[in-house]
Write a protein that binds this DNA or RNA. Structure first.
Length: 460
RNA sequence: GGCCCUAUCGUCUAACGGUUAGGACGGAAGCUUCUCAAGCUUUAAAUCCGGGUUCGAUUCCCGGUAGGGUCACCA
């Protein structure tokens, strides 16, 4: 059977249900499906599994579609297929099963046919139970399938009992719908999360009853929260759209996600989507779950930020910081910010934390701070001299390099800390800040001179 | 609890049976134009346990232990 699949064009799919925003774990599943298809010259298809009418929402549908587009994972089917629009197809197949005696309409009495076990499902009470459902007639056989990542997996399906495959002839349950959709879309490889392993045997049972070919399966390791349990909406999972809002670069997110559970076997860590599409190999996918590490993702994003350069930062600078500044001042600002952030949104965060207060208002500080702790000389004279050096620079060439050229020789002659520390404090009012040359360029000649004079006056 | 899956530094991971067990993030230390940031250098840190197989096990097999997943008229 596998022979015949291998000769066909490879088709993978990503079938989220619009019952929540697109989470990182789902995004990685989509990515791996995308990469596997591209690597093998196949297609990557997208469909929405919205058979659950109560929980599916338009809002989530939009989020999922937009998040996927933002990440740049384009699917090859033009029209997005929705299960809710295919009820007639499911109905026809359901009817076939019932007619052939492979499924039956079950009158649900007080005693259901759930397999007996000590485990009590806490969600059993959810929703009203129908008086009549369609159950699959379980042939009670042992199913063995090959998982491309884990090898052979065997289940005895007897414990599944006659499971429900539809709430009514018009309302198929997930297991039925996936099997039919995958067959109709000619899906050759089902690549999904590890939590899908236990669904596989019942889906294979349905496939066999319907006479559909069996796709190849690959179950990806889960993405875990720091406590090593599955990342879920109520447990640490953050939607892709949230990372987008925080100012992550989509390629960086994809890059990080690719490395969660996979690596090419080399020490390379930065890849474009094209490179990933070339290098990806299901055989090199990890078996164990991987803890999501936001720090690592931030550091990957920082690498992308560096490649994007200072110019890319400019559109992300809040207007309060750019207001009243010249083009060159804004460029200097972008350069300064680039060194200090990992994602664009950090600018806003740090601004809110007061990190860039000196860019908005004249600093307020105690005059004692003007003296460097290891100073060997008084700061007042140095500030006066620096001020007059600065005043000689043309406001048109008031750049970091020109300012440094004018002031640095003096600082070297008199003691760098003795000169630079008070200058910097006069400009920023802070013990920790960018260097005084950068600060001057950011503030412009007028403000720089004004702040230096204020400091000199404080020392009178 | 039944069934299924998994097991290398704190985290993500490399090592087609033979390596001083490598890299990255994070940590520590140092260097760099005063402080911060950035950068550079150095450094600490791991093969879950017990049996096999083998001249030799991180690697193969078995058992244990631990962790996870799943047990819906959700997907």
């Amino acid at each position: 059977m596998n022979q015949e699949i291998e000769s066909k064009k490879i088709i993978t799919r990503f079938p989220p249900s619009p019952t929540g925003k697109l989470q990182l774990g789902n995004a990685r599943t989509a990515l791996f499906n995308y990469l596997f298809a591209k690597k093998n010259g196949g297609s990557f298809l997208f469909r929405l599994e919205d058979t659950d009418k109560e929980r599916s929402k338009k809002e989530y549908e939009t989020d999922v579609i937009e998040s996927l587009a933002w990440l740049g994972l384009r699917h090859d089917n033009r029209e997005i297929q929705k299960q809710s629009e295919r009820v007639e197809i499911y109905k026809a197949q359901l009817k076939r099963l019932v007619d052939q005696g492979l499924a039956y309409i079950s009158k649900e009495t007080e005693l259901s046919q759930e397999p007996a076990s000590g485990f009590q499902s806490p969600k059993k009470k959810d929703g009203e139970r129908r008086e009549e459902v369609i159950r699959f007639k379980n042939p009670n056989k042992v199913i063995t399938f090959t998982d491309l990542i884990r090898g052979e997996i065997t289940f005895d399906t007897t414990e599944l009992g006659d499971f429900v495959i539809a709430k009514s002839m018009d309302e198929p349950i997930y297991h039925l719908a996936v099997v039919i959709d995958d067959a109709e879309m000619d899906i050759t490889h089902v690549i999904r999360g590890e939590d899908g392993i236990s669904n596989t045997p019942r889906q294979i049972l349905i496939q066999e009853a319907l006479g559909f070919p069996r796709p190849l399966y690959a179950h990806l390791p889960l993405i875990l929260a720091p406590d090593r349990t599955k990342l879920s909406k109520r447990h640490g999972a953050i939607p892709v759209s949230e990372y987008r809002a925080q100012g992550y670069i989509p390629e960086a997110v994809l890059n990080y996600l690719a490395l969660l559970g996979w690596n090419p076997g080399t020490e390379q860590e930065l890849f474009s989507l094209e490179e990933l599409s070339r290098l990806f190999d299901l055989g090199k996918v990890q078996k164990g779950g991987a803890v999501f590490d936001e720090e690592k993702m931030r550091s990957v994003n920082k690498e992308y930020l560096k490649k994007a350069g200072a110019a890319s930062v400019i559109p992300h600078i809040p207007s309060e910081l750019t207001a009243g500044r010249s083009v060159s001042q804004v460029q200097a600002l972008a350069g300064m910010l680039l060194e200090r952030i990992s994602v664009y949104g950090d600018i806003k965060t740090e601004l809110t934390a007061g990190e860039y207060e000196y860019l908005l208002n004249d600093p307020i500080y105690a005059k004692e701070m003007l003296k460097w702790k290891k100073a060997k000389s008084e700061p007042k004279e140095h500030l006066e001299n620096v001020c007059s050096l600065v005043e000689k620079i043309s406001p048109d060439t008031f750049t970091v390099s020109d300012i440094k050229e004018a002031v640095f020789p003096y600082a070297e002659a008199k003691g760098k800390g003795d000169v630079l520390w008070p200058t910097r404090v006069a400009l920023s009012g802070k013990e920790q800040s960018p260097d005084p040359f950068t600060l001057s360029a950011l503030l412009g000649k007028e403000a720089t001179v004004k702040r230096l004079r204020t400091a000199i006056n404080m020392l009178e």
